[in-house]
């Protein structure tokens, strides 16, 4: 256990150091999230006058979209980091050392989490400058960060599984396109009951992101609903359980001896 924790710490610090040294892997993702925030707030905030929004400022409604898109991009970095190691031959060097196999896979995920929490904090700060209100103060903030970290972890599990499965940067990058249906087949811009296309309403009901958005919006609304929040937490937990199991299964297959 001590060896595992020591390996996990060393490899996580190294993954963070490497992340900082490749700013081009972080900055575009952060900029895209901020761009979403700016454009959607600028272009769509007028619709917040519709009764369906219940007087919630549009910046409070749209912030979760920027946060979740940032989280997904940040967590995807975990997969990219593994791919970089596989391509450079460094992953093989680590496999030939007595390092814990679990730490080898977990470290880039933890570094990805740290990266997305910093990104989320920055996005919230910008949103605050644009008029975001936190009706429940620190609870809103902490609840938001917990959901973001959880959702990021779920996506990091997916990204790592895809990276280990494909061992190819293009394939791993292509796999992150799942982000688009997850983000946009949901109540992204308007509440679910205001979506006109029937098929999109159905898709949104099956999309776990919908429940994460709703939980975040509940935290940012004066009418906080515990039920809605726990539905969001449940969606996150189920997604994390699914993707981490998949990542762990893929890791055990790709790290075992060649047969």
């Amino acid at each position: 256990m001590r060896k595992f924790l020591s390996d996990l710490w060393l490899l996580t610090v190294r993954a963070l150091r490497v992340t900082i040294r490749v700013p081009f892997a972080i900055i575009p993702n952060l900029l895209i999230s901020l761009f979403f925030l700016l454009v959607y707030q600028g272009g769509l905030s007028g619709i917040a006058a519709l009764p369906v929004f219940g007087k919630l400022p549009y910046i409070n409604f749209i912030l979760p979209v920027a946060v979740v898109s940032g989280a997904v991009g940040g967590a995807g970095g975990a997969g990219q980091s593994l791919i970089r190691d596989i391509d450079s031959g460094y992953f093989m060097k680590l496999r030939l050392s007595p390092v814990s196999r679990t730490a080898l896979v977990l470290a880039p995920m933890i570094a990805g989490m740290a990266q997305l929490l910093v990104q989320t904090a920055l996005i919230i700060a910008v949103a605050y400058a644009m008029g975001l209100t936190l009706p429940h103060g620190a609870l809103s903030l902490v609840g938001l960060l917990v959901l973001t970290a959880g959702w990021g972890l779920a996506f990091a599990g997916y990204a790592v599984a895809m990276a280990l499965r494909s061992k190819n940067s293009q394939a791993a990058q292509a796999a992150t396109f799942v982000f688009f249906p997850l983000l946009f087949l949901s109540d992204t811009f308007v509440p679910i009951r205001a979506i006109r296309a029937h098929w999109m309403r159905i898709a949104a009901q099956f999309n776990p992101t919908t429940y994460v958005f709703n939980a975040m919006r509940s935290l940012l609304s004066p009418h906080f609903s515990t039920t809605v929040y726990w539905h969001g937490v449940l969606a996150v937990l189920l997604s994390v359980a699914f993707t981490l199991s998949w990542a762990s299964w893929t890791a055990s297959r790709s790290l075992r001896k060649e047969l």
Partner: peptide, 17 residues
């Protein structure tokens, strides 16, 4: 793995460190 050293044909170093 704890007792051997290995250098394979493809160099295994972290280029960002």
């Amino acid at each position: 793995r704890s007792h051997i050293g290995v250098a394979l044909q493809d160099v295994g170093v972290d280029p960002l460190l």
